[in-house]
Structure formats: C-alpha cells, structure tokens
Amino acid sequence: MSSLKEFLEKKVRIISTDARLFEGTLQGFDNSTNIIVSNCIERIIYPESDEETQEIPMGLYLLRGGNIVCIGEVEDPDPVDWSTIHGDDLKGTKNPL
C-alpha cells in the first residue's frame, strides 16, 4: 500500500476486477486502497472486427480498493498507439460462488 505514494500526482493506469481500464492522475488513496483519480478516462478496447478504442471522460473518479486488480505508472508521453490496439473481451477476475 505504501508503494502507492510514489504514484501520487502521476499518471496511472488501473485495471478493475470487471476488466475495465482507467487512466488518470492519482490524487489520493487510503488504507483500503480506495483511490481518487483526476482527469480520469475509461478506455474501451474492441475486437479487430469492431470499432477503434474508445475513450470516455470520467473527470474526478473514485475507485474502491476491492475493485482494483492493479495500478501502474504511465510513461509520458504514452508510448501506446491506442488506435492500433484491439483485443477480446476479458473474463472477470472473481470466481462465481
């Protein structure tokens, strides 16, 4: 958890348990790894046969720690050309009861 301190005020990429991809500037976090992200966007990546990757502006966004799989810093400028990225739907990370 203390390792998140190094990401404060930096651009991060977050993957959630329901396979959503978020990017933004990490503004804060707590002991439960709930995080606050400013200038947040959600990226939606489609299979090759569908449309290009979509960016949905979310603004200031709060993500619950229990819904976060991983957080990592994004290089500036971002080396990924998102218009060329395609993929398949990801399965959820939680097992059904």
Rank of each mutant, 00 (worst) to 15 (best):
Ser2Gly: 12
Ser2Leu: 13
Ser2Val: 15
Ser3Tyr: 14
Leu4His: 09
Leu4Cys: 07
Lys5Gln: 10
Lys5Trp: 02
Lys5Ser: 13
Glu6Arg: 15
Glu6Met: 13
Glu6Thr: 12
Phe7Pro: 00
Phe7His: 11
Phe7Asn: 09
Phe7Thr: 10
Leu8Pro: 01
Leu8Ser: 07
Leu8Arg: 13
Glu9Phe: 01
Glu9Thr: 06
Glu9His: 12
Val12Gln: 00
Arg13Lys: 12
Arg13Tyr: 07
Ile14Met: 03
Ile15Met: 08
Ile15Leu: 13
Ile15Ala: 07
Ser16Arg: 09
Ser16Glu: 03
Asp18Met: 11
Asp18Tyr: 06
Ala19Ile: 07
Ala19Val: 14
Ala19Gly: 13
Arg20Glu: 11
Leu21Met: 10
Leu21Tyr: 08
Phe22Ser: 02
Phe22Ala: 03
Phe22Met: 04
Glu23Ser: 14
Glu23Asn: 09
Gly24Trp: 01
Thr25Glu: 09
Gln27Glu: 11
Gln27Lys: 13
Gln27Met: 11
Phe29Gly: 02
Phe29Gln: 04
Asp30Gly: 15
Asp30Ile: 08
Asp30Lys: 15
Asn31Thr: 11
Thr33Tyr: 08
Thr33Ser: 09
Asn34Leu: 09
Asn34Ala: 12
Asn34Trp: 01
Ile35Ala: 07
Ile35Arg: 01
Val37His: 00
Val37Glu: 00
Val37Gly: 00
Ser38Arg: 10
Asn39Lys: 15
Asn39Thr: 12
Asn39Ala: 10
Cys40Arg: 01
Cys40Ile: 13
Cys40Trp: 02
Cys40Leu: 05
Ile41Thr: 12
Ile41Tyr: 08
Glu42Gln: 15
Glu42Cys: 07
Arg43Met: 08
Arg43Leu: 15
Ile44Arg: 13
Tyr46Trp: 12
Tyr46Cys: 08
Glu48Gln: 14
Ser49Trp: 03
Ser49Tyr: 03
Asp50Trp: 01
Asp50Cys: 08
Glu51Ala: 05
Glu52Tyr: 04
Glu52Arg: 11
Thr53Ile: 11
Thr53Asn: 06
Ile56Val: 12
Ile56Thr: 06
Ile56Ser: 04
Met58Ile: 11
Met58Val: 00
Met58Thr: 00
Gly59Asp: 05
Leu60Ile: 10
Leu60Trp: 06
Leu60Tyr: 04
Tyr61Met: 12
Arg64Tyr: 06
Gly65Ile: 05
Gly66Met: 04
Asn67Lys: 14
Asn67Tyr: 02
Asn67Thr: 14
Asn67Cys: 14
Ile68Pro: 04
Ile68Arg: 01
Val69Gly: 06
Val69Ile: 14
Val69Asn: 09
Val69Gln: 04
Val69Glu: 02
Val69Ala: 06
Val69Arg: 02
Cys70Met: 05
Cys70Ala: 05
Ile71Glu: 01
Ile71Trp: 11
Ile71Val: 15
Gly72Gln: 00
Val74Met: 06
Val74Asn: 03
Val74Glu: 03
Val74Pro: 01
Glu75Phe: 14
Glu75Cys: 09
Asp76Cys: 15
Asp76Ser: 14
Asp76Pro: 05
Asp76His: 07
Asp78Ala: 06
Pro79Trp: 00
Pro79Ile: 00
Pro79Gly: 00
Val80Lys: 01
Asp81Ile: 08
Trp82Ile: 13
Trp82Asp: 02
Ser83Asn: 09
Ser83Val: 14
Ser83Gln: 06
Thr84Ser: 13
Thr84Ile: 14
Ile85Met: 05
Ile85His: 03
Ile85Ala: 01
His86Asp: 01
His86Thr: 11
Gly87Leu: 07
Asp88Pro: 14
Asp88Ala: 10
Leu90His: 05
Lys91Tyr: 10
Lys91Phe: 15
